[in-house]
Every structure is written in structure tokens, then in C-alpha cells.
Design a binder for these strands. Structure first.
Lengths: 344, 344
DNA sequence: ATAAATATTGTTCACGTGTGCATACCTTGT
DNA sequence: ACAAGGTATGCACACGTGAACAATATTTAT
């Protein structure tokens, strides 16, 4: 039924080893026979059996792309950009296996080095630490995106969310705003904390006392942005500007403001984070921070491939190879949702 | 290093066969030894070698999720919903391998039944036919989502886009609109054609002659919706309502209208398609058609699992098993972006 | 021309698992 | 006590591939 290298060998009057070598482009094989065999394989529609291959080469040709969760807290645009970015780089060399970490329920035994040649962790919370430690312990190269690796011996790529948020809030304050609120991201997410800290630092540097009433917990989804804004609107002293920790929530916030018969940015300024595809097409166009998700993903994919290659070539001396850490700057994107005011 | 069933066998003083049977819950094994072995395997952190397993059982435990393309034309919300829906159902039983069909460049040889136990094709264009035929020919169960299977012998789940578009446009016309434009989806996509046809049928049933100048080609992304609307605004006889073939383009269209100092829906009514997460939070809230992507994906995942199981149990008599076809209704979601007018 | 070196091909085994068949143990009925 | 039947376990092989080593063919150097 399915054709194997032994079938080809029989037809070509050679041993299966020769076929194996020919198809793997071994320099040991005569070019003439090599071509003859390759052609024959092509004609017979030969497909290598990945299981048999992996069994002996100890490879799976799978790269795992792990998200903390695929439920609330992961915005669609973010997810799409990540998968696309990674897929673009690994192309047909690997299979991209998408997983949600929370589905493992803390039982990581099923994750073995024969299952994944490498794992990219799109980290949202520190709770993925156990997973990463397990992966390392079974010898799988790991690249961690989106949060600092700390003491974990893994490749690391991150965007400087704190700095991005700082620049944005600084910009807002420089436009005359003193009562600047924040709609925070999902609780426990690293990005949530980073952006909050950037916000706090900017306030501090301008001598503004943070007001807990102006810090509302969100969940990174549109609905939570809407609810958070509604809550802010109830304050006796309304904020004049609101920093939403991502663009999705900014959409919700704008909705709540318009529903209250107010205008953005005339009555309340709004800023987001991410610069997703919609940001430039909202009304008003959203001032936000561009987080280079695309770039992070592509760099991450390239890095994991480097690490896999390195591991294959590794000898004892190189066992403890060094790992790379890359930070990609986020950039402030000024549009029209933040107005200049003269403080009262 | 890594523990195999032979290691367990040695420690348990049994043959590796017994271990294999015990771990696979064979009724042949005594319950006492079975438990003893299972416990031991647990303690040793045993992980089955999927390659070895697959080599003999002819399975890969991979389910392919194939998109026509991961570039323009696939909206992020759509993509996210599909992956999440499928992943939710297959859980830890299978690996979800995400692929973009266009990356194969018409060479499908690498797709074998040992690589994928089943394939879910999220079809956007008919050009995926070759891929599907290949998959069938090598014996992989296939479920086709999003477009009619026609003569292809595959599982099929689709939403009735034509009907959905018809109902929406019918609703628009019943609100007094006669000059109803359409911003079409990406050229060649089945959904584009279906929605256009629904639009045309509705016009026809109301005795309205379709006007080619009111039919603008889009690409399903925000920017193309914006451009299309700008073009429509240049018409001497502007449409009073525009049906955008998805919500993303509706966002772009609304932007163009507001930029021209006009209002939605007072000056021009807008409707979308999909009912994505943003639809309810736009201003005005978007009237659209809810396409149950989530449900389609989940049903699709469940169906492919049924087909895989069926294939495993299949005997010669059942070789040509029947395949299921399911249609899921899309539903009109009336919000506030379409106004009632009295025709001049 | 012949030994040495090189290029090319073949033999055999291993990877880790599951299964058909053989075997040993245990129960039951007589 | 012994055959018959069931229950529980082991043996040997197969899956398809790649690699170490052996073997043969070809070229080069003297």
C-alpha cells in the first residue's frame, strides 16, 4: 500500500540503506545512483514515515507553541499574530502544535523530548514556570516569549511593556492630564503588572499621587473594558484620561463613554496598548503603543530553530550552552484619542 | 535516561509485553499486576514514545487544522475562534497541528496518513480541492468546514452564509433602503460568493436591479473596508446602506464615513457579517449576522474524531462508510447601525 | 603491476512498542 | 487424580528508518 525505502530498494536493485542515504543526500552515495533513486522515489510518491524516522533520530519535527490559556485574556489579534509569525518562519520544516497550558492540569508527563523538538512558550503568567521546568528537565529547548526568563535557562524574547506604558502615560500627562486612570489587564498576567508599573512610574515622575479609585481591574477583553469605564464614569471626580492596558479594552471603554453621551477625546481621552489592526480605524483613531508581536514571534521561531540545531550538534563540552535574550522595543503611536487640556 | 516499558519490565520482573498490556488496560492482565505496573510507571515518570507507538499502531495522534491561508483574508477573530473551538474538543487526545495550505505550493506528498490521523480543512476557497483529494487518496479522514463538499467524500459542516446574507439584506430593504451597496469579501473565497449571492437574491426578490457600481471588491480586512467605502462615497448617487461582507470591513467602512463628516446610521446605514467580539461595542452597535464559528469548529472536531474511530474499527464491509453533512444556521443580529428611512 | 587509498554499497542491528502464538499456571468437573 | 478449560504471562517478530561496521569496487601512487 504505502511505499517504503525497502520497496524502492528492491526496484532499484540496491539495499535500503543506499536508498536512505540517497534520499538524505549523503555524500557517500554516487551522484548517478543518487539521482536515479530520487527520481524513483518521486515517481512512486514516496513519503517518509515520520514515526520510524523519529524513532531512530530522536526527533519529532514538532514545535510546540504553548499559550497560558486560550480562553479569556488572550486577544484574538494577539493570538493570530503569534501563530502566523511563528508559522511563517518554521514553514515546512516543522509541525506547529498549538497547545493551551491550562489543559494539562499540572500533569506535564506527557510532554517529552520525543514529542517536541522544541517549545515556544507565549507566556502570560508566571504560573507556566512548572511547565517550563519540566520541559528543561526532559531536555527540550525552550524559548520564552513575553516575559522575563529570570533564572530559567531558556531563550527569551520580550517587549519592554513597562517602558512602553511609561512613555504613553508620560505623553498623556504632558498633555495636561492629571487625573489619569488605568484599566488593568487580566489579574496575574505579567503584562498586566508591567504596564501598571509603567503607569505608576510615569505618575510618580510627574509628582502625581496614584489614586486606587482610578485603577480598575480588567480582563483584556472588550467587555471588561466597557465595564471598567462604566465604573470610572460613576466617580464624582472623573478621570480626564484613561490608559487601557490593551486595545480591545479601549474599544469597550470608548463605547461606555459614548453611551454616557460624552465624547472621546473632548471629554475623556483614551489610550490603548498593542496597536492592533483596528486601532487606526476607530473613531477617534486610537493613540496606543505598538507591541511588535509579529517580530517577537518570528524571532522566537528563529531562536528555537537555532537552539534545536545547536542541541543536535552538541557535545559534552557544549552541554551547557548559553542562551540568548532579546528585548524588542515597543513604540508610542500617537493618533487622536488623547487631547491636550489645560489643567484647571 | 528516558524510561521505556522494558525498564519497567525489568524492575517489575515481568516481560515488556505484560507492561505494554497493563498500561493499555488489556483485560488479559491480572488486576493486581496491572495496578502494580501502573503505579511503577507513574513513579518512574514513564512517557510512552509516540513514535514507536505510532510506528506499530499506524497512528500519529496528530489532527491537522488547515487554513487556506494565514495571510490576508483570514480575520483574527475567525482564526482564534476556530483554533479554540477545535482545541477544546480534542483536548489531550490529539495534537493540533495548524497549517496554512498555501505553504505547500501544490506539493502534498508530505501529507501522509502516518502524519495525520485526520484533517480538518477550514476552507476559504475551492482551490483546496487538490489538497483534499490527496488526503482522501492516502486514506486520511477529512472534515471540510465552511464550504459545501460537493462530490468530495468528506465530512462537511457549514453555515448557511447565503441565507444569512439574504436575511440581512432583506431586513435592510424592509427598512426602506433601495440603494444598498455591498463590500465583497476576498476574491475567490467561497464565503465571498455566498454572501454576494444572498445579497443579489434579496435585491431581486424586492425587485431592485443590482448596480455594479455599488458592488465593491474587498479583502475581508479593515483597510479594504475603508477603501471600499471611500470609493462608494465618491458616487454621485450614494448608497443609503452598505452591507459589508464581514465585521472587520464594517469597521473600516464606518471610519471612512465618519471621516467624510457623515453619520452612521443617520446618513448611511452599515451592516456586517460574523458578529465578532467587537460588533456589539462599536458605535453604533453593529447590525450583523452571527456566524456560529465556535459551534462549527467544535462540531468539526467531534466529527473528525468520530471518523477516525470509525476508520480504526472499519472492516472491508464498512470500507465505504457514509459521511455526515451538517448545516448550522446563521442568525440575524439586529442592533443599531441600520436606520429606517422613507424612500424618496 | 600492485599495493594503498578512496569511493561506493551492503549487512546487521537498534530504536520502543504492540500482537500472534506458545506456554505455564490455575480452576473446575468428573 | 486427571483431563479440560480458562487465565495469565512470555517469546519472537514486525513496523520503517538510520548508522556502525564490513565488504567490495574503483582510483591513485609507486
Amino acid at each position: 500500500m504505502t511505499v517504503t525505502i525497502k520497496d524502492i530498494a528492491r526496484l532499484a536493485n540496491v539495499s535500503h540503506t543506499t536508498v536512505s542515504r540517497a534520499l538524505n543526500n549523503s555524500p557517500l552515495i554516487n551522484d548517478k545512483t543518487k539521482n536515479r533513486i530520487k527520481q524513483m522515489a518521486d515517481k512512486l510518491n514516496y513519503t517518509p514515515n515520520v514515526n520510524a524516522k523519529g524513532l531512530v533520530t530522536l526527533r519529532s519535527y514538532n514545535i510546540g507553541l504553548f499559550f497560558s490559556t486560550l480562553n479569556t485574556g488572550t486577544s484574538a489579534n494577539f493570538f493570530y499574530d503569534v501563530v502566523r509569525g511563528v508559522n511563517m518562519v518554521i514553514k515546512d520544516q516543522y509541525n506547529l502544535v498549538v497547545k493551551s497550558i491550562d489543559e494539562f492540569e499540572s500533569n506535564y508527563n506527557r510532554i517529552s523530548s520525543r514529542q517536541y523538538d522544541g517549545i515556544i512558550v507565549m507566556s502570560q503568567t508566571r504560573s507556566d514556570r512548572a511547565l517550563i521546568e519540566h520541559a528543561i528537565s526532559v531536555g527540550i529547548p525552550v524559548v520564552l516569549l513575553n516575559r522575563a526568563a529570570g533564572d530559567l535557562h531558556v531563550g527569551n524574547i520580550l517587549s519592554d511593556d513597562l517602558k512602553g506604558a511609561y512613555q504613553l502615560v508620560d505623553y498623556i500627562i504632558r498633555n495636561g492630564h492629571r487625573r489619569v486612570a488605568i484599566v488593568e489587564g487580566r489579574e496575574g498576567f505579567q503584562s498586566t503588572i508591567q504596564r501598571k508599573n509603567g503607569y505608576l512610574e510615569a505618575l510618580k515622575d510627574h509628582g502625581i499621587e496614584p489614586n486606587p479609585k482610578l485603577c480598575i481591574q480588567g480582563k483584556y477583553d472588550v467587555g471588561s473594558g466597557y465595564e471598567a469605564m462604566r465604573q470610572l464614569l460613576k466617580e464624582e471626580l472623573r478621570p480626564t484620561a484613561v490608559f487601557c492596558s490593551n486595545d480591545d479594552m479601549a474599544v469597550g471603554a470608548i463605547k461606555a463613554i459614548i453611551e454616557a453621551d460624552l465624547q472621546v477625546p473632548e471629554d475623556i481621552s483614551i489610550a490603548g496598548f498593542d496597536d492592533n489592526v483596528f486601532a487606526a480605524y476607530l473613531s477617534p483613531e486610537l493613540t496606543t503603543v505598538k507591541r511588535p508581536i509579529d517580530q517577537i514571534s518570528r524571532e522566537g521561531a528563529a531562536m528555537i530553530m537555532r537552539m534545536i540545531d545547536l542541541k543536535l550538534k552538541a557535545t559534552q563540552e557544549h552541554a551547557m550552552s548559553s542562551v540568548e535574550h532579546i528585548t524588542i522595543e515597543s513604540v508610542l503611536v500617537i493618533r487622536k484619542s488623547v487631547s491636550t487640556i489645560t489643567p484647571a
